[in-house]
């Protein structure tokens, strides 16, 4: 599995740059334009990241996060999910920056290559900020009644969260 994942990124970059050269496109100018967008995009989320990481750090230092997680322990064991990932599951659909702050703290305390660390990574990478997408897209066309959008979107999120542990067990043999 590790050997395979080494190839993904260099291969993607190789193909894109290779075709760009072959088609005689100004690849570096394009790169600069895109990189500027990515740079400014990251800078633009800085205020919300600062606010949310501070709040998550406070929550962790106060012991509130531990108390909450220990309450959730029975549920986590029932569903065979690492307890540390429960706050992430609750915040993920609501806030992108908030869940980023949480997973930063989770990976910092359990390590990215531990079982909970890998499960949290998969949860984060395989789901979206559901309520944000719902608000943006329905808001843009003035829809008031979203009908079955929220139940269906949450069903997708929940199945993704539950499947994360399963898939990490399947693909990483050392657990």
């Amino acid at each position: 599995m590790e050997k395979f994942s080494f190839y993904i990124i260099p291969t993607i970059i190789f193909i894109i740059v290779g075709i760009g050269l072959y088609k005689k496109i100004h690849i570096f100018d394009l790169f600069l334009k895109g990189a500027k967008e990515g740079f400014l995009g990251t800078v633009s989320i800085a205020p919300s990241i600062i606010g949310l990481i501070t709040a998550v750090s406070m929550l962790k230092a106060s012991g509130a996060l531990d108390i909450f997680t220990s309450f959730m322990e029975p549920f986590a064991q029932l569903l065979k999910i690492p307890t540390q990932t429960i706050p992430l599951m609750l915040l993920r659909p609501i806030s992108g920056s908030g869940s980023l702050a949480l997973i930063d703290s989770i990976l910092g305390s359990v390590g990215p290559d531990s079982f909970p660390g890998r499960v949290a990574s998969v949860m984060m990478g395989s789901t979206e900020t559901t309520f944000y997408a719902i608000a943006v897209y329905f808001g843009a066309v003035g829809i008031k009644n979203t009908r079955h959008a929220i139940p269906a979107a949450l069903a997708a999120d929940i199945s993704g969260f539950l499947f994360s542990s399963v898939v990490v067990c399947l693909l990483f043999k050392n657990y």
């Binding site: 080494f6 990124i9 930063d104 990976l107 990215p112 660390g117 890998r118 395989s126 993704g160």
Partner: peptide, 23 residues
């Protein structure tokens, strides 16, 4: 994030993420 926290292979969760996304 995985690289920042010292993952041996930061991208090794990619196939797991693809599978989970599909589900």
């Amino acid at each position: 994030l995985r690289q920042k926290h010292g993952a041996a292979f930061p991208f090794d969760v990619m196939p797991a993420i693809w599978l989970t996304s599909c589900v």
